[in-house]
Design a binder for these strands. Structure first.
Lengths: 142, 142
DNA sequence: ACTCTTGGTTGCATAGTACAACTGGGCGGG
DNA sequence: CCCGCCCAGTTGTACTATGCAACCAAGAGT
């Protein structure tokens, strides 16, 4: 019956969330899950604003502000004042930032690949599709 | 190609982890994700020890100790000294604990059911199977 | 009995977060 | 043109969750 499957999905998602929570801080000496996410977002939309990041990820602007400060101190991003609106800071990846990001992305990719290496590609594609569906299209990059 | 699917799985799992992280604390006024997990574990193995919980979930014993203290203060669990070994505290759900746990479990179940209500049961079962496989049988309750 | 082990608590330190108050730049109506 | 209002971002404060290390107390082995 389907109720059982829902139960399983719930249990497994919870288990995954718990495990992810435990490892989120130590994924990389330089980068927590959140800072990785912010950095990765910048790769896609270079020059976006802190407020955008906050809205996009449902974080408080103060939280983003501090994360951005940390990332800037680590020289992974740069803040440039928007010439059109001096209130705004446009965030840009630096070269070291790009490098670290690529490195972390790669190590994550490897980890996932190892975990999934013996899956038939048909299953991979179906699983991927289910996850996308589960997470919902409404927030494609959330 | 399958690499793309792996990419998608990685992205979606990351997204899910981020979202879960953000809501883990506020899933219920009484119960965070961790305390819910501990409580739920006790339902399965009533009278287990704090150390077991720590080992099982990869948490520090101090963390568990504090969580247990909080759960006891909230009267959701009881600590009884093991008569055979006075160092050990056997943890037991109280009736209110069982009640709250059931309530939270139910509300979570409802949330998942709503999210999955328009999935064909065939898809639910496949998705569930994929998740189980992804999480690995080695740690069925981790 | 003395020591080693083990379950648990407590004192720090840290990360990540929210909320609220504040700062300082823009912008629009009179 | 100026004053009041809005908006981006920062900072102060508090809280939660966590780990590590030091500690305490109770068993176990010699």
């Amino acid at each position: 019956m389907a109720a059982e499957a829902v139960e399983t999905i719930q249990r497994e998602m919870t288990s995954f969330a718990r495990r992810a929570r435990a490892t989120a801080g130590r994924m990389h000496p330089e980068l927590s899950l959140v800072s990785y996410t912010l950095l990765a977002h910048l790769e896609g939309s270079d020059g976006c604003r802190a407020t955008d990041l906050a809205a996009h990820y449902g974080l408080d602007k103060s939280t983003v502000s501090r994360q951005v400060t940390a990332l800037e101190r680590a020289a992974l991003i740069e803040r440039r004042v928007d010439p059109d609106d001096h209130r705004v800071q446009l965030l840009h990846l630096t070269d070291p930032g790009r490098r670290i990001l690529a490195q972390v992305t790669e190590s994550r990719r490897t980890a996932f690949q190892e975990r999934l290496e013996d899956w038939p590609s048909e299953d991979l594609e179906r699983f991927a599709a289910y996850l996308v569906r589960y997470n919902g299209w409404s927030a494609p990059e959330d």
